[in-house]
């Protein structure tokens, strides 16, 4: 269980050749072995959603997935949202709507919304609101996050999604 296995993780379009123990979670592998610390751990039991990323466009809790399970998948993290210095519309909506304070849960919410809108661009507002209740935030009281998410939904409805880089 503690012997390391060589795997390749494809994160934000780049391959990371890493060696990790089979018991290592995807979240830990992203943070420790790929150097991508934007994915945060809030509970490590799959409730708070701070560690949410997307794998093949589906939002997943990276604390509940082993790194070895993600090999071959298209893994996306918060670090992949902006293009260079240009923030994605969703990131800008979070800033504009004051949808973050300490920022710790923010990557999880961003990737939850990103994955949801990629998978279901025609989702209803009520369904989107319901999905957002799967992540926890202690700072904002959520209303501004809902506003930012709704703006992202409006944006998704009126634009053709760009293929991920």
């Amino acid at each position: 269980m503690t012997d390391k296995t060589a795997i390749t993780l494809t994160v934000n379009g780049s391959d990371h050749h890493i060696a990790c123990a089979p018991r290592k979670t995807l979240a830990d592998a992203l943070r420790e072995d790929c150097g991508l610390t934007g994915t945060h751990l809030g509970c490590e039991h799959g409730v708070c959603g701070a560690c949410t990323i997307t794998v093949n466009d589906a939002p997943v809790r990276s604390c509940l997935m082993f790194a070895v399970q993600a090999e071959g998948g298209d893994i996306r993290t918060v670090e992949g949202l902006a293009k260079g210095d240009d923030l994605s519309p969703l990131q800008q909506f979070f800033i504009d709507e004051h949808a973050l304070q300490c920022g710790y849960c923010t990557p999880g919410f961003l990737m939850l919304i990103e994955g949801t809108l990629r998978q279901t661009p025609d989702i209803s507002e009520d369904e989107l609101d319901e999905i957002l209740s799967s992540n926890l935030c202690r700072c904002t009281g959520y209303r501004n996050i809902l506003r930012a998410a709704r703006r992202a939904l409006d944006h998704a409805r009126t634009t053709t999604p760009e293929p991920a880089a």
Binding site: R31, G35, L36, T37, G38, T39, H40, L41, T77, V78, E79, L81, A82, L87, Q91, F94, I95, H98, L100, C102, G103, Y104, T106, P107, L110
Partner: peptide, 21 residues
């Protein structure tokens, strides 16, 4: 005025305790 803190946080460049290598 817009928060100075936000840009690093939405891009995954916050530097929380466990992010320090």
């Amino acid at each position: 005025v817009p928060r100075q803190e936000d840009r690093p946080f939405v891009t995954g460049r916050g530097r929380y305790l466990d992010d320090i290598a």
